[in-house]
Design a protein around this nucleic acid. Sequence first.
RNA 1: CGGGACGUAGCGCAGCCCGGUAGCGCACCUGAAUGGGGUUCAGGGGGUCGCGGGUUCAAAUCCCGCCGUCCCGACCA
Length: 489
Amino acid sequence: MADDKKLTTRAADFSAWYNEVVLKGELADYSPVRGCMVIRPRGYGIWERMQHQLDTMFKDTGHENAYFPMLIPESFLHKEAEHVEGFAPELAVVTHGGGKKLEEPLVIRPTSETIIYAMYAKWVQSYRDLPILINQWANVVRWEMRTRLFLRTLEFLWQEGHTAHATHDEAEEETRKMLGVYRDFMEGWMAMPVVTGIKTESEKFAGALRTYSCEGMMQDNKALQAGTSHNLGQNFSKAFELKFQTEAGGIEHAWNTSWGVSTRLIGGLVMTHGDDKGLRTPPLLAPIEIVIVPIWRAEEDKGRVKAAAHMVKESLLAWERRVPGRLRVHVDDRDGIKPGAKYYEWELRGIPLRMELGPRDIDSNQAVLVRRDTGEKRSVSLSSVGEEAADLLHLIQESMLIDARERREQNSIRGGITYDRFREVMAGTGAFVYAGWCGDEKCAAAIKEETKATIRVLPDEEFRSAEPPKTCLKCGGASIAEALWAKAY
RNA sequence: CGGGACGUAGCGCAGCCCGGUAGCGCACCUGAAUGGGGUUCAGGGGGUCGCGGGUUCAAAUCCCGCCGUCCCGACCA
């Protein structure tokens, strides 16, 4: 039976561990405003690399960046019924300006659909004006009850893409395409495997026709919704009269999509790859890929060892790597700190590769390379150090994804699970469980009540088993949806 | 918003029960030695004890109120 395997999970107090890695890794800090976060340079360095890569991928798929205002007239939110219902409880509202009470309150954007489609309505006359493919990087505010650094803060930084199309099929294609971009980024760059799929009616975005999502598994076996892509249908174009004249001459409402990822991804990175030594950063996202620690015993060695370290750095910078861009190398030649202390510090920061360079190495034209992910050490010749380092970084990137995927598979259960066993698993380690659902919200609600597990997505093929579940996990009735059940952040 | 814990130096904490000159570890600064996995010694700087009120000759300590943080519920990218 698939569910007889041994499930594993990280230490019980995962929250404390997470906070420790984030705070001691100096990724973020609490701000004076409750529930808001300050991203410190180390965290922002990772985010900048994420942002740059995502931006590149958006541009490669034909999108442009723009900027829309932070303040939105309250009435805009009310134009789409489901949308306002979904967001009303968590809005921050500006009621005064210039010392006077405003005639109409302004909400601080919780997301920008309304203001953006109001503008698109002005810009679009003809089918020739479509599609509009725009992205914006912005901070948004949602007044959450409970907050957590990176995962759920009152204010957060994200990217939101908003597009308008002439047909439903084109919008659907865009929605799926951007979900794929997210998956490629999360797996290829963050080394974080995700399950993609469609959200159920009750879990979809407020105002969407369909919502697709990327769900990663964290080390406590809970799911993290890492990115979403929505097919909004004509809901917003009807609310904001976003209409165009077709080639045939008729007037039709446009079809919209929106999709976003946020700084939550940094939290996902920590919870996917962190270990008890601190952060582990995939090489492609590491602000520094290689740190060179020069080691000297006698004072007379110091000068030549430091000089050698900088020469090695130069030779690494000169190395032509396979992916675009130079190797990112730092020499830690600080005085007064012993090498061991430096090792701990760089391990905490998650730098993927460390090079130890001492007098003995230099005399034998060698250096020691140490992998952050596995701790493995190897001696390499200084004449081929660039190639060795580049190969190792490539290997680390690959093996971090493989390891994370293996961990997820180890903690996934497909098929043949009884509800009793399901309850037992969810009360214990937790898992990704692929099982059927009869489609009745009462069953889903009962499962949530009893186990805290919800349907994360109806997964795409990659995650499904050969044999689809035939019965509902809870009631045993005929299954109409093959669902991924898990506890979630 | 309900239940619990907590708030004292940059970080982690003791002191509170039983009121009486604000302490410890790490970090930081100076000097010297040290340096292949968290150096050692000596000297030094830093705190309106979360905020406000009350009791008292005297409050970090007792009482009341507020604010904030964390954990557990409801909400959520």
